[in-house]
Simulated assay, not measured.
Amino acid sequence: MSIIKVSNLHKRFDKAHVLKGLNFELNKGRWLSIVGKSGSGKTTLLNILSLLDNASEGEYFLDGINVTHLSEADKQRIRREKIGLIFQQFHLIPYLSVLENVMLAQYYHSSIEENDAKKILDKVGLLDRLEHLPSELSGGQQQRLCIARSLINNPNILLADEPTGNLDEENGEIVLDIFKKLRSEGKTIILITHNPDLAKNGDEIITIKDGLIVNE
Results as ranks from 00 to 15, higher is better:
residue 52 L to A: 02
residue 88 Q to M: 05
residue 30 R to V: 01
residue 156 N to A: 10
residue 52 L to S: 04
residue 165 G to E: 06
residue 25 E to A: 10
residue 140 G to Y: 09
residue 1 M to F: 05
residue 55 A to T: 02
residue 57 E to Y: 06
residue 184 S to D: 13
residue 26 L to I: 10
residue 129 R to V: 07
residue 211 G to I: 12
residue 135 S to W: 13
residue 164 T to E: 02
residue 50 S to N: 08
residue 201 N to I: 03
residue 17 H to G: 03
residue 196 P to Q: 12
residue 200 K to R: 14
residue 158 L to G: 00
residue 178 I to P: 02
residue 26 L to C: 01
residue 75 K to L: 12
residue 121 L to S: 08
residue 9 L to G: 01
residue 185 E to K: 09
residue 76 Q to H: 08
residue 164 T to I: 01
residue 107 Y to F: 15
residue 118 K to N: 05
residue 53 D to K: 05
residue 44 T to Y: 07
residue 81 E to I: 01
residue 189 I to R: 00
residue 42 K to Q: 12
residue 19 L to M: 10
residue 108 Y to L: 15
residue 18 V to N: 04
residue 170 E to W: 04
residue 176 L to Y: 12
residue 206 I to C: 08
residue 113 E to R: 15
residue 216 E to W: 05
residue 193 T to R: 08
residue 44 T to V: 13
residue 69 H to T: 12
residue 32 L to M: 07
residue 8 N to V: 11
residue 178 I to D: 10
residue 45 L to P: 01
residue 34 I to N: 04
residue 210 D to E: 15
residue 68 T to R: 11
residue 116 D to A: 13
residue 49 L to F: 08
residue 154 N to D: 14
residue 119 K to N: 14
residue 123 K to P: 00
residue 172 G to S: 05
residue 82 K to W: 06
residue 211 G to A: 09
residue 205 I to N: 03
residue 47 N to H: 15
residue 87 F to I: 06
residue 130 L to V: 14
residue 98 V to I: 07
residue 37 K to G: 07
residue 149 R to V: 01
residue 124 V to T: 12
residue 162 E to M: 01
residue 114 E to A: 13
residue 27 N to I: 00
residue 189 I to T: 01
residue 187 K to T: 02
residue 79 R to T: 07
residue 16 A to R: 10
residue 74 D to H: 07
residue 90 F to S: 02
residue 91 H to S: 05
residue 30 R to L: 11
residue 79 R to V: 03
residue 130 L to Y: 15
residue 101 N to Y: 12
residue 198 L to V: 13
residue 187 K to N: 14
residue 109 H to V: 14
residue 131 E to S: 15
residue 153 N to G: 11
residue 99 L to E: 11
residue 176 L to D: 05
residue 22 L to V: 08
residue 180 K to C: 12
residue 94 P to T: 09
residue 97 S to F: 07
residue 174 I to Q: 13
residue 16 A to W: 03
residue 18 V to H: 02
